[in-house]
Computed example of a mutant assay.
Amino acid sequence: MPSSDQILEDRKVRPGTGSAARVLRVLHVGPLPPPVGGMATVIRGLQEHQPHQMRVLDTRKTTPEGRRLWRGIVAQLRLLLQLVSACCGWRPHIVHVHTCSAPTFWRSAVDVMVARLLGRRVVLHVHGARFHRFLAGLGRGAAFWARRTFAMAHATIVLGSDWREIIAPWCPPGRVHVVPNGVEVPEVPADRSAGKPLHLVCLANYEMRKGQGDLIRALAELGPETEVTLALAGAETEKGTKAQLARLAESLGVAERVTLADPVSGKDKDELLVAAHVFALASYDEGLPMAMLEAMANAMPVIVTRVGAIPEVITDREDGYLVECGDVKAIAAVIRELAASPSAVRRVGQAGHALAAREYSLARVVGDVESVYTSLWPPAAREVST
């Protein structure tokens, strides 16, 4: 079981951002990397760039697979005690709770309730590609408690306008805010137009809904005359999926052109992105994938499906390529086009980089989050707060 130092990670305000009396204290409740995942990456990005005093109550799983039930209960109770201790001792102005589908949402519901009972303002930040399915599948009693959870939060953050339409009916009026994910954007990304074969990369957990099988089928659709390779990397969150994909590649005769790697982060991920020409993600469910934004930030043209908030970001054939879920022939056609046109790889990649720098940089997203905080705790109130 982790120590309190492992659970509660502190990030002090950067010098020159204001006096202690005026600086907001924000407690984030959610996972830190590792694991590799969108929610953890978002929290780390905010932690490194927010101009606030910030602490993170790290909720990542620390007990082993196959644990006894009592160990999980003890771990959750310990996290809850850490939340109470932080709220009463450090006294954050805002508790920012990161959540997704069950069972995480129900644990988050307890966090929201406790923070409210202790007099804290609460932001509920919804991640997760299948949250709409989670809400749609709730029974009457569970739906009642979900609505109560959203009502207890002073503000709810979602990743895009479509998600706002889904979540708004569950929340009191005016409390849903759209804040997309954000990434670091290099000023001078690598040139993506040189080199053969065309190298595709997909960074996604090994799950059937992520559509890696459709990418492998698209390679087979192209035939050997189109020189293309595909690198897959991610955590196997659905057991057996990785082996199933390997068998699929073997059966379609493209195994030599497909690599299946474990999850990557840090320098390893940077190297994988630099080595590739094109990013592809054929998901059937998404929120706003961090991997797609990271690829755009690195001037890689992206081939992605029309799901979640992705169509709000990508304009087809301008700063990326949009295809329908499961349309293997359409995926293959885009790959064939890019393999034959290095100039298209460069042009669309650079347009995606410009879009990421303009709309999805961490600086921009941190500013959007700050606007939500300001609506709950204006600077004038901070001056007299303790």
Rank of each mutant, 00 (worst) to 15 (best):
S3K: 12
D5E: 13
D10V: 14
G16V: 09
G16D: 12
T17I: 07
G18A: 09
G30T: 06
L32G: 04
P33F: 13
A40L: 04
E48P: 11
E48Y: 01
T63D: 10
V74M: 06
V74D: 12
P92Y: 10
H98M: 10
T99I: 02
W106I: 03
W106Y: 14
A115I: 04
L117D: 01
R120W: 02
L124K: 07
H125V: 11
V126G: 06
H132A: 15
G139H: 08
F144A: 10
A146C: 10
T149W: 00
A151Q: 06
P172A: 10
V183T: 15
A190N: 07
H199M: 06
C202E: 06
M208A: 13
Q212H: 15
A218P: 11
A220E: 09
E225D: 15
L232H: 12
E236Q: 10
G240Q: 01
T241D: 02
A243D: 15
A246F: 00
A246I: 08
V254L: 03
E256F: 00
V258P: 15
A261G: 10
S265A: 15
H277R: 10
Y284K: 09
G287A: 15
P289S: 11
A291H: 05
M292H: 05
E294R: 00
M296S: 07
M296P: 09
V304Y: 02
R306T: 14
A309H: 05
R317G: 04
E318A: 08
E318N: 03
D327P: 04
V328I: 15
A330Q: 12
I331W: 07
A332L: 08
R336W: 02
P342V: 08
P342R: 05
V345T: 10
Q350R: 13
L355E: 13
E359N: 09
R364S: 14
R364V: 13
G367D: 14
T374R: 15
P378Y: 13
V384N: 05
T386D: 11
